[in-house]
Amino acid sequence: MKGGAALVLELSRIVYQSGIASPIGSQRGQNARLRYLNSPAGRAELRAQGVSDRAMRDWFRGKSRPSKANLARLDAAYWTRRRANLIRSGWLTRHLDNAGRGRQIEIYPVDQSHVEHGRERDNVTERTAHVRYLWGDIVDAWADQDDGLLDELWDDIICDLDSDYTAYAYVSAIGISA
């Protein structure tokens, strides 16, 4: 995958790890998500996910529990609002910027086990890059779903890998030390 797409996956993982740990199938997980979404913006997101006003009213009053179909909608609404709130509040940018110290990114190159013998690059190994001052732009591009800008920012990150940087334009995965 392109490096920008790998950034999207890793940022999503960070948001997911910072959220409610209880699964949506548990009563505790459902109650926590309902509390989080008990606001005008949360209710609007539930509506956008296809939940009726009547169902929401019953849930928030404790008269009924979400059906299996609505559990998926409730969970999707929670993660959408959680992502938006972390971006809007600036928490994600501050977390990644780490008071100006930045974060390490581990870069795992494309798996070359299926490349024809003699054409593989055996000198492409896992690398690390220290990223500072780009996190605000990366989070903004992610919020705007601007894949082109994310790819440009990825190029800015890997350009510090000397002459090897083009080998890391496409990656298997990345990891952000968060």
Rank of each mutant, 00 (worst) to 15 (best):
Q104P: 09
R73L: 10
K68Q: 13
A84S: 15
L71G: 00
N85Q: 13
L96V: 06
R88E: 15
A84T: 13
Y108R: 12
P109Q: 07
A72H: 09
D75G: 04
A72P: 01
G90T: 12
N70L: 10
D97S: 07
W79P: 00
I105D: 01
A84M: 04
T93P: 09
A77V: 05
H95L: 10
L92Q: 02
A76G: 09
A72S: 11
R81P: 01
L74H: 04
T80F: 08
E106H: 11
K68S: 15
I105A: 04
L86A: 09
A76T: 10
I87D: 07
S67D: 01
Y108T: 12
E106G: 15
K68C: 09
I87F: 06
L86P: 07
N70Y: 13
R81M: 15
K68L: 13
Y108P: 03
Y108I: 14
R82C: 10
S67I: 03
I87S: 05
L74I: 10
S67L: 01
A72C: 04
I107L: 15
R83T: 06
Y108H: 07
R73V: 03
A99L: 14
R101N: 09
E106Y: 12
L71F: 03
G100C: 02
A77K: 01
S67Q: 01
I87K: 02
L86Q: 14
H95V: 03
N85T: 10
L74K: 07
P109Y: 08
R83D: 02
R101D: 10
P109H: 03
I105M: 10
R82W: 13
N98M: 07
D97M: 04
S89E: 06
L86H: 12
Q104F: 12
Y78K: 04
W79I: 06
A99C: 11
R101I: 04
A69T: 14
A76L: 06
I87V: 15
A72L: 15
Y108F: 09
N98W: 03
Y78H: 07
G90C: 11
R101S: 09
G90W: 11
G102W: 00
R88Y: 04
L96E: 01
S67W: 02
R82S: 15
E106K: 12
R103D: 10
R82Y: 14
A77M: 06
R82F: 14
D97K: 05
P109I: 12
